[in-house]
Structures are given as C-alpha cells and as structure tokens.
Design a protein around this nucleic acid. Sequence first.
DNA 1: ACCTGAACACCGTTCAAGT
DNA 2: ACCTGAACACCGTTCAAGT
Lengths: 195, 195
Amino acid sequence: MRQLAERLGVVPMALYKHVADKEDLLDGIIEILLADLPRPAAGARREWRGAVVASIAAMRELHPAHPWLRRVLETRTLRTPAVLGHMEHLTSLFLAGGFSADLTHHLMHLLGNRIWGFSPELFNEAPGGTAPRRSTAALPDPGDYPGILAIATDARARRPDATGCDEDFEFDFALDVILDAAERLRRARWSSPPA
Amino acid sequence: MRQLAERLGVVPMALYKHVADKEDLLDGIIEILLADLPRPAAGARREWRGAVVASIAAMRELHPAHPWLRRVLETRTLRTPAVLGHMEHLTSLFLAGGFSADLTHHLMHLLGNRIWGFSPELFNEAPGGTAPRRSTAALPDPGDYPGILAIATDARARRPDATGCDEDFEFDFALDVILDAAERLRRARWSSPPA
DNA sequence: ACCTGAACACCGTTCAAGT
DNA sequence: ACCTGAACACCGTTCAAGT
C-alpha cells in the first residue's frame, strides 16, 4: 500500500478511495491479469485433453513476467469472476469430454494449483546447499541423505550445465500423469463410492 | 515474536538470545514437531506403497492439532535435518522399491506438498458463496458457472449434511492416482528422454 | 549467560479535515 | 469526487546497556 502510493506519487490513504483494502486491490489485479486469458474450446468430445493442456499452458505463461503472481494466487480467498471463469472453463472441458461431475470434481482437486500454472517447490536447494543464513540449525551432511543425493547426482548427470530442476519438465510430467489417469478413470466409468 | 514474548512474560528482544530470527524459530518448531514422525520401513521390495502411504498419513495426522502447520511448511526455505529426513525417507522407499533415481525424482515433484500431508485448497467457497467482504468486485452469479454449479450440486447430493468438500477423500484419491501411476511407470521402466 | 529499554524502519488502516 | 495529515495499532530487529 505505502509502496504503491509512493510509486503513484500520492499519500497512502488516497488509495482507499479506489479499493476497499489490500485484499481487494490484489483481487482486482488478478481479475485484470486473467481477463485476457485464452479459453480454447475443445473441437470435439475427444479433444478435451488438448484444450485443457492449452488452457493451463496459457495460465503458466503468465508467470515469468509476474514473479509475484504465484504468491498472490496462493493467498486469494475470494472467488472473483475471472478466477471462477478459469475454473469454470476447465470444468466445462472435462464435463463436455464425458467426465461425470463427480470425477471432474476430484480431478480439479488433483490438479490443484497446477490449474494456475505452477506447482509446489520441493527441492529448490540441494542438501548441504547454499543458504547464506546464520541459523541455529547445523549444516546437514549429504552423507546422511543417500537417497536425495542419488537423485541429485542423477539429475545433474542428465543436465550437466543446469543450476536447478527443470521446472517445465516436472510440470509437464505431472500434467501428463494426471491427465493419463483422468482418461483411464473416465473410460472405466469411475465414480465415488457411496458415503 | 512480540506475541510469543508476551506469552512468555518477557520482553521481545530476549528471544534473540535463543533464535537467530523469526525464520530460525519456525524452522526449529518444525524440527521438533517432525522429530517423532514414524518412519515405517517397507518389509519387502513390493511393499513400498504401503510404507509410503503410512508415512504420508502420519504426516497428515499432525495437521488437525496444528492449524498453522500448513502455512509454516509452505514458507520454509531452509532444508533442515527433519525436513530432509522426511524427504529422504520417502525417496529411499521408492528407490528400495525398484524405482530409478530419475523416476523417483519426478514422483517426488508430482507428490509435491502432499508429502507434507496437505493439498492445495481450491473450492473452499461455493460460487456466490459466503464471503462477508465489502469488496469492489461484484457478486458472481452462479448461473454464469454452470459447470462448477453442476459439480457443487452433485457433491451436495452425495453428502447432504456436509458443509464443504471431503478433504480426506480428495487427499486419498489424489494419493491413489499418483501411486497407481507410479507403479505403472515403474513396471514400464519409464525414464526421462535425453536432454 | 541472559534480559532490558529505547529506538529504527517498517506495515495496513481509521478518522476528520481539506479542495 | 478525490486527496491530505496526523494518528493508531501493529510488525521484526539493532544496539548499547544492565545483572
């Protein structure tokens, strides 16, 4: 608020004539950002998957230009029109693709934040990693974590000149696994067990 | 910090003799909380799945008693011993179960925060929901979101006296889908395409 | 070794007053 | 209709001083 006000060359309180509070401002920013999202329709019943992938890819492409987007999306608590619109679009693609409402529901949960084009970070730092911090905790010894070390070594061997994980690969891998499973469950006419 | 200090009947600055800063304090809390986590070993090579599920279930059981846990875990940036220990345990179960380092790596990413026993919230509020907020945004009209409405209606029909989603069901569903896929990829000797 | 007091550099937000 | 000034109720953290 204060920083934004300064950037606008105005006193902080001036903002409150235009937004209710900070949450409202962030909600509004998301609305504007999502307004131009392409919403590719599925051409035919069996083309749901391509449309889902394209829609999520469009969402994912927003992130590089807006490093704050992920954190803001994670903290949104209000379902505003553009947010609902994106969910509605994906949902409708599944339904039109022959998924039951039940299965569609669970798949949306399974996709989770990946519908917003990002996935949780897990391994961003190697064991015994960088972390320039004067903390109370002792530096971990890589030898104590042979499994993680094996994974890290393997990853490094596959991509010698990379600094971290290939986030795009992990994202696509996860999406593929989830949509493969979706397709399988759809064909098996899966449905929730009775409560 | 200030609240904790008051609770301890001490001045805020007294805390800084015991922890480096707020992050260090939270890291320490997580260390203590995870210290007693059971780490079930897999009895045999093909029992990896039961051990993974049990390990994640144990993690998940911590949450009800500690509502703050999820938010704190999400913001951790340092890989402390107990955090690495949990990752190492899951990783070692996959490796011992015959998964390649490569596939194990991708599966850990696919599991994401579910290794910490929680999953992202998506539908916590219904369209046109509660939200007592004096925001700038207009109230969404449920008629604009027929797909979401269909899902919500179906969910309500299945669990008439429930107020929200069955988070436990969603969690177990997601875990099942992921581990089914894992098993399938393992058997197919899946490995990353060359870079 | 541990705690204190005063201060710094921030937040988001209210209220009454200005134009 | 929009902006301002002064204030409130908070944060995490530093530094020098106390015991």
